[in-house]
């Protein structure tokens, strides 16, 4: 399987995603410069975390105008797999490839720590290999407070497109377990056809034993599994 990791000016988890895909998943991976437009060689496009364009305007608001984003739109429309992590999720939301928006954390502080996430739907390209109810994956963001109007939230729920919610270790969805104020504790959502995923937690940060946790690997393995089964 061949991954393309997009590099925007200010991306800073690009090398981390590249490393995990290459060294841990043992899959083919290439960097895609934000001015490139040909995504045809890739089976999955990764929009990594970081601070594209410094996040000086709204997070992701400038990156969405990069030439590569027009191609990402076409790639996704054709059913290609796209995962946006953290800043990547923010860019997907700004680009309209996923609904909703990500506001500033209600704490008004950057938060970097492990959180527990209840997996809401395991029948997707991103979660088919998840074998437990709750995943422990770190977040690291200042703007992860997901919002959407009631109708959109209803639809996301109805269609099973909410894949991850902040929870306690037992999987209970509580206010205390919500680190950033996200509506309905939403941490990750998918597009209508489930081929586009946006999530605030960083699966690449917990995909190796030496880093303490490997729950992130279940998400990476899911997408490889999905691809190898011939979609």
């Amino acid at each position: 399987m061949r991954f393309g990791v997009v590099v925007f000016p200010g991306s800073n988890c690009d090398a981390d995603c590249y490393y995990v895909i290459k060294e841990v998943l043992a899959q083919e991976v290439y960097y895609v410069w934000h001015q490139e437009t040909d995504l045809s060689p890739y089976d999955c496009v990764v929009l990594p975390g970081g601070f594209s364009y410094g996040d000086y305007l709204r997070c992701g608001a400038i990156a969405r105008f990069s030439p590569v984003m027009e191609s990402v739109r076409g790639f996704a429309a054709a059913g290609g797999l796209v995962i946006g992590i953290c800043n990547g999720f923010q860019i997907l939301a700004e680009a309209g490839l996923l609904p909703g928006a990500l506001l500033r954390n209600t704490t008004l502080r950057f938060i970097c720590r492990y959180v527990d996430l209840r997996v809401e739907n395991t029948g997707t390209p991103w979660t088919n290999s998840v074998d437990r109810k709750v995943l422990r994956i770190p977040i690291a963001h200042n703007e992860g407070n997901f919002v959407a109007d009631e109708e959109t939230l209803d639809r996301l729920n109805r269609e099973g497109r909410v894949l991850l919610r902040y929870s306690d270790p037992e999987g209970n969805i509580t206010a205390e377990a919500n680190p950033n104020g996200a509506a309905q504790n939403i941490a990750g959502i998918a597009s209508e056809n489930f081929n586009v995923l946006g999530l605030m937690p960083h699966p690449e940060r917990c995909s190796e034993d030496i880093l303490g946790h490997t729950d992130g690997l279940t998400i990476w393995r899911s997408v490889v599994n999905h691809f190898e089964r011939g979609n």
Partner: peptide, 17 residues
């Protein structure tokens, strides 16, 4: 001191063991 260091990204680059 977690109030302090949880405001810092202490994991990026995947080296912090």
């Amino acid at each position: 001191r977690h109030w302090v260091w949880e405001q810092y990204d202490h994991m990026v680059q995947l080296n912090t063991v």
